[in-house]
Design a protein around this nucleic acid. Structure first.
Lengths: 223, 223
DNA sequence: CTCGTAATATGACCGCAAGTCAATTAATTA
DNA sequence: TAATTAATTGACTTGCGGTCATATTACGAG
């Protein structure tokens, strides 16, 4: 009976080895240019073996993405686990998203593959399910925080927390994508610093959602 | 000499026929699942012929996208060509972007392929150039309008027009992408109407950028 | 009208990569 | 040690983007 457990462990370990190899190759080449043969070689396994552990290249890709999402979640948890006022926590959350982006660009890039279902031809139902679950966890963290800010009277009651979350999330993500792709272009051709623009966008939105009480506290906080 | 002209016309026409066929197939299947053989069949030509007119599948895809971008530009032009006050024009611009999205979802979806350079493996330099030119035209329209609103004292002077444009554009786009993919999910699981959220986001941002004069005018406008 | 030439169009073919599976090897059990 | 089960392999199949030698058509000179 100890044997089946060990086998289980070894199997899990192999899955991890494969993911690690896949990550290396995907980071270097991206989904399209990475080949399963390459990943197999990096994992020191044959291609056939990969398919014993993952149903498709896209499943493998999504599995790597999930590692990234987990790291992102940890950033968020850490950023919101202090005893600071809730508006500060929301602001921290925005900062930590950007920090995650800067320190994990490869993951960030992969993450928005997930949002493009046009690209999911071969994703298995199981992996998708786990993905959605993880997504929910992240949204819950954000939404709960905003709910708290509303309850405490810092954000306007007539804005639904989910709405606020979607708005803040969408604009942050979109701007970071822009930074990822075209930062130089905007800086050099348009004379605009996108990182500054991101901060501006976040504070404009957040302030626009605040109550007077919130604005008061926020401004004292910023100084 | 009339003959070479006719030939020129016929060649241009063939290019158009091919684009039309490609569009049909891409609309139905998306970039990945569409095959060149399929497009060739739809165009009633052989695959080889396609490659006499377009260098790659991705070039063909981008060429279809450019049709979409042209249509979008026309929406924008029409929305901003009236004599209404400039804040109303900016608001109209947002509405027309959403209208474009609703009436041309297929194009909208394709447009965001362009922003993912990870996917551009085979795009030729020429097509890319035309693309960038078109992009600039659209940005110019938006930025000029915002510049006008600043000049006329409706938007704050300390916000750069390019910044404002990027912020408004990014958040609108991101929310429409969300609508395109997951509207039902947000509506049914989260009880949130994303179309309303988009409008909210736009007005929050716009108002947050306004001067007092702007807010006064805007509020009288909304009623 | 007709023949040579140039412009167009064709589809068999190539190379590559995802995914499969019969055969092989390794580990476990009797 | 032999039999059974599990894990692994890599040759093979399939499908598609892209190419190119060949065929077809359109044109113009004689």
């Amino acid at each position: 009976m100890g044997i089946t457990e060990r086998k289980e462990r070894e199997k899990e370990q192999r899955r991890e080895e494969i993911i690690a190899a896949a990550q290396k190759v995907f980071f270097e080449k991206g989904l399209q240019l990475a080949t399963m043969d390459e990943i197999a070689e990096a994992a020191e396994l044959s291609k056939g073996t990969l398919y014993l552990y993952y149903k498709s290249k896209e499943d493998l890709y999504l599995s790597v993405i999930m590692r990234g999402a987990e790291i992102m979640y940890e950033f968020f948890e850490k950023a919101t686990a202090t005893n600071e006022p809730v508006l500060k926590l929301i602001s921290n959350l925005g900062d930590s998203y950007f920090e995650f982006f800067q320190k994990n660009r490869q993951y960030f890039r992969m993450l928005y593959f997930r949002d493009n279902p046009q690209l999911h031809k071969q994703v298995s139902q199981e992996v998708l399910q786990v993905c959605l679950e993880q997504d929910r966890r992240i949204w819950k963290l954000v939404i709960d925080l905003i709910q708290r800010a509303i309850d405490e009277g810092y954000l306007q009651k007539n804005i639904k927390p989910v709405q606020a979350a979607v708005i803040l999330w969408s604009s942050s993500t979109a701007l970071m994508q822009q930074i990822d792709r075209n930062d130089n272009y905007w800086q050099e051709q348009m004379g605009v610093n996108l990182e500054e623009t991101l901060r501006l966008s976040n504070s404009l939105l957040l302030e626009a959602m605040m109550t007077d009480k919130g604005k008061l506290e926020y401004r004292s906080m910023v100084i």
